[in-house]
Write a protein that binds this DNA or RNA. Structure first.
Lengths: 210, 210
DNA sequence: TAACATATGTTAGAGATGCTAACTTGATGA
DNA sequence: TCATCAAGTTAGCATCTCTAACATATGTTA
């Protein structure tokens, strides 16, 4: 997004033995290392140094690409939110317009993201807000909520987003948000619960849309 | 709880000029300093050193009372959860048994705690779970949920906690949990919104108990 | 009451981390 | 071809967590 990729990654250099001075796409490599570490060790034990080791560069290198640690985390979260939106939109495909199943599907993807990428989820929603405050993140969140809003409106047969639509959407978002945290924290992430989860969300959708 | 208080705090010593070698109740002082700092700077920028400065002791002192940083945070959270339970029980007083208003009141206290003590709330629920894993915390959480369970049961005219009661309680807890995060993160904590919040919770209670 | 054991402080310091300053490398374009 | 500049490097400071070794008060016991 920032600039076109100019070089291949270090590892794919033809001269295998020699280490190239320049990495190729360090920014992307650092973001990926950050993502991995955040998932492996948890957001609060993430360290820039370790990401550098993983990317094979010195500990000063990141500061050519990011202002500080926070901006690194922020970049990883931003990419995560793009994935989340993508998942939601993908989940909607094939489900008939106006069906409450579409609302349920959005909720399912939200919870799934929380369980599949708990580190990123926590960074975004777990209250690191004071440290990770990128306007693009806020904007992205609005977009995601916008998807829900329009689906709820269609379910209720409204042509536009009324105050009632907004309120019900907010209630459902709160619920799914809380559910995600609870499932993640209390290890109810077991496989096999997936069906149960779906019926739970259907139940709530029905209560909220009624 | 660990032992009876033997001495007054340092500051209240009669010999004002001389600093006593022993603090008096350093453990409690450190927990309070931790609580303050967690609220002021946020859980992720909390440092043991700063708590020491605030308590007026050397940076090695805490390690006579706590295994490590995590245990210090854990102790502060534990006290917070005691406050939360106390608030909930206090809120129930005066509201007639079996009234849905009791369920709403519990939710109100939960959200209020999240807004009044966002740092502690986040430490407990924001996913520091892997670092703060005290069995007493888990137990305390179960107690709080138990309060909700019994109130929901009474509202539904059940004499015991049925599977249905458990499910509805879980749904409501999820909702209130998510709501707390969202309100905290998106600055909807404005005073004056309190009434609106109450009617929101009533709305949800009604949908969930029906 | 003297002396010991223990709890609770202290100082010193090792090792990790975030970030900056100053230097180096090598790709790009005039 | 060579100057420029983006993107690396090394060196080092300030800070942080935590440990080891030492110091001091408390209270227990001979």
């Amino acid at each position: 997004m920032t600039s076109t990729k100019k070089f291949e990654e270090n590892t794919s250099q033809p001269t295998a033995g020699k280490k190239a001075y320049h990495h190729g796409d360090l920014r992307a490599a650092l973001i990926e290392a950050t993502r991995q570490l955040v998932e492996e060790k948890g957001p609060d034990s993430f360290s820039v140094s370790e990401a550098c080791r993983r990317a094979g560069v010195s500990t000063a290198a990141p500061y050519k690409h990011f202002k500080d640690k926070t901006e690194m985390l922020s970049a990883a979260v931003l990419e995560g939110m793009v994935r989340l939106r993508g998942n939601m939109l993908a989940a909607l495909e094939g489900i008939p317009e106006g069906s409450p199943e579409r609302v349920t599907a959005i909720g399912m993807e939200y919870v799934a993201f929380a369980l599949n990428e708990p580190g990123i989820f926590r960074l975004k929603f777990g209250g690191f807000t004071d440290r990770i405050a990128d306007p693009r993140l806020e904007e992205g969140g609005q977009q995601s909520f916008g998807i829900l809003l329009s689906e709820v409106a269609k379910c209720m047969g409204e042509s536009e987003v009324t105050e009632d639509v907004r309120k019900r959407s907010f209630l459902m978002w709160s619920f799914v948000h809380g559910l995600s945290f609870i499932l993640r924290d209390h290890g109810l992430a077991d496989k096999g619960k997936e069906f149960e989860l779906h019926s739970l969300l259907e139940d709530v959708s029905e209560r909220m849309l009624r």
